[in-house]
Simulated scan of single mutants.
Amino acid sequence: MSVGNSDIRSALPVLALILVSLTAGCAALPSSGPTPADVEQEITAADPPDEVSATVDVRRTIDGETTRYTEDVWLHADGRSRVETSADGTETVVVDDGDGRWHYDVASEWATRLETDPNATSSLEGIYAQQERYLEAYEITGVEETTVDGRDTYRVTFDPPTNETIERSISVLIEDTEYVLPLATSEGETAQRGADHVEVWYDRETLFPVKHTIEGDGVTLERTYRNLEIDGGIDDERFAFDPQSATRNETITLPSINSYETVDAADEAVPFGVAEPPADALPDGLELDSITGYEFHGENRTQVSLQYRTPGDETVSVVTSDGPRRFAVGGDAVAIGRVTGTIAETDQGTELQWSCGERYHSVFASHAFDDGTALRVGQSLETGC
């Protein structure tokens, strides 16, 4: 049977409709998921929620030794928080009511209160700020949609940029240990506790990191949030602590801290001369990294610390103070000019201390430097002794 031109013309609109339908159907198919750029944009734009509560499972492996413990956490955007930690049969409670932070050891019934800075970053802000730092130092190399404890999440993999030398670092503070990321210098050296791989599982709705792993250089850190509630309404009583529950309690006043651009500026701000070593007394590669003044109200003492740092994050610090430190390091007697000081080896490095009239000085040099570094720097200072 033949088909005429008129039949073909009448069929064209129908074919066109079929093609439009097929094309629309293809456009409606689900995509392969968010791209790294999409997720980066979401992380950057995310704001912390008002409240978070959860049970956190923590696993930490350092040089083959693994520690596990559990935290029950309640965090508020205004800075209030409560963390109850169970580890190896010990229980501690840390409560920040916005004005002060209580540390309570349940077994010993000993409570210690620290005054808190009203301008300090809240725990929730710090968690989200950490994600920004990952984006600054790492590349997103993988994104996967998955679940954690019943929550829809993005599993995001961060790795150091390929074929690129990283000359600066960021840090993650886990309890009292600071882990520096990613720790590659322009000379290719590796500093302590480098981490070369990070994975974060983000809640898709709030971008809260419900799981977090860091790996590298003999360290594996993992935090997993279970029973997570976001903006669920936390009772204000969670952020209160009654010191009467403790048989012993004490209050520790934190120092006021100021940063200075130059040694001269620090010298003008404090009631004593700030000792500064000459450049030729310092090991090669050290540069002045920070100048910080501390006013210890509880000790009626002020000090200024000059921190020198290498690209590999090794440090030498020089401290001048108008009073002795409460927790001074002891050591062996050593001559410094016309006075006698002490020098000691610690877990971090060499510490040298001495006094000169009403001035107190110390020099610290990390283990990367030879044993005589602290003494050479100390003897180079013009302290009037």
Rank of each mutant, 00 (worst) to 15 (best):
A111Q: 05
I43L: 09
T85A: 06
D196P: 01
Q353D: 11
G126M: 06
V143Q: 09
A240M: 12
I127V: 15
I343M: 14
E91W: 03
H103V: 12
V200L: 09
V143M: 10
Y308H: 02
T315S: 03
A266D: 04
L181A: 15
R359M: 13
E125Q: 07
T310F: 01
E51Q: 07
Y128L: 07
V270R: 11
T220F: 13
G372I: 00
T157L: 10
T177W: 06
N5R: 13
S2P: 07
Q348P: 01
T206H: 04
L375D: 03
Q379D: 11
Q131H: 02
A365Y: 00
D242V: 04
A335M: 13
L381P: 01
E145N: 05
L375I: 08
V93D: 07
L75C: 04
L181D: 00
S171C: 03
L381K: 05
T350F: 00
R9M: 08
E287T: 08
R309A: 12
V20G: 03
T315I: 03
D149I: 08
F239T: 10
Y308W: 02
T141E: 13
C356D: 10
H361C: 12
I18H: 05
A120P: 01
T67E: 07
L183P: 01
C26N: 04
L173F: 06
G337L: 11
D231E: 09
A344W: 02
G384H: 10
V95Y: 02
Y360E: 03
N300C: 09
Y360S: 08
A281Y: 02
S362Y: 01
T66A: 07
F296E: 12
D7T: 14
W74F: 10
T66C: 01
T190N: 11
I291R: 11
V39G: 05
V58D: 06
G312D: 07
T383I: 09
P49W: 02
I8K: 13
E144K: 13
A374K: 01
G64L: 06
A87K: 10
R193N: 10
L375T: 11
D57K: 12
V83C: 00
A335Q: 15
V263M: 11
R193Y: 04
S10I: 00
